[in-house]
């Protein structure tokens, strides 16, 4: 089981990973987007870190909803409303719990993904974060149903997310700023799909 403190620790870890990969994500975004993804994600999670002390006493649903609101307010690019919506929907689905298990996590992620689809009016195959999120969720659900332990479920998710990132390379972007490039977006991995794979890997590393 995962308690409130661990959830906050993981969020702080996500902030470190976004800071460490700020340049990398921004470079990816420079190639096919507006070159702000790494900077924006690092700025958003730095704000989450500032609130970490206040977050620790809240239930997990509230921690996630507050994180989502912070990302919406502070990120400044599309990843703000998209990741912000994902965290808020996950928080609403998980609700006022102080401990969660894998089923709660997968339910939260599923709600988050549905939120991203609705917010971005997008689906898989459009060279977006959904192309790593959706395969990761499917792989984890499958492992969970097969009775695997937490670590094995998360590892399967990370592997699927990373494969999903690779799969964005040949795709033509039809959503987001990269869609202005059309065919010229082919050959480059999607920054949003990449940042999700980093975030999921950070969750996995915590177990």
């Amino acid at each position: 089981m995962t308690d409130q403190k661990k959830v906050v620790d993981i969020l702080l870890g996500m902030g470190r990973v976004m800071e460490e990969n700020k340049e990398f994500l921004t470079d990816l975004d420079n190639t096919i987007g507006d070159g702000d993804h790494g900077i924006n994600m690092a700025r958003g999670f730095a704000e989450v870190e500032k609130q970490a002390e206040g977050l620790a006493g809240k239930d997990i649903g509230n921690i996630l909803k507050t994180t989502g609101m912070t990302l919406v307010s502070k990120v400044g690019g599309s990843s703000g409303p998209l990741y912000g919506t994902a965290f808020m929907k996950a928080g609403m689905t998980i609700g006022a719990k102080t401990e969660i298990g894998m089923d709660d996590f997968l339910g939260g992620l599923e709600a988050g993904i549905e939120g991203v689809k609705a917010r971005g009016k997008s689906t898989t195959g459009e060279k977006t974060m959904l192309d790593s999120m959706v395969p990761a969720l499917e792989a984890m659900k499958e492992k969970q149903a097969a009775g695997a332990d937490v670590k094995a479920v998360l590892e399967a998710g990370v592997a699927a997310a990373e494969a999903g990132v690779e799969a964005t390379k040949p795709m033509v972007a039809t959503k987001g700023r990269a869609s202005y490039l059309g065919e010229r977006s082919v050959g480059h991995q999607d920054p949003g799909a990449t940042s999700f794979a980093f975030l999921l890997k950070e969750i996995c590393n915590a177990y």
Partner: peptide
């Protein structure tokens, strides 16, 4: 204008 301007306004 575009993208996050639309999504952030929606939120």
């Amino acid at each position: 204008d575009m993208g996050s301007a639309v999504m952030t306004t929606e939120m």
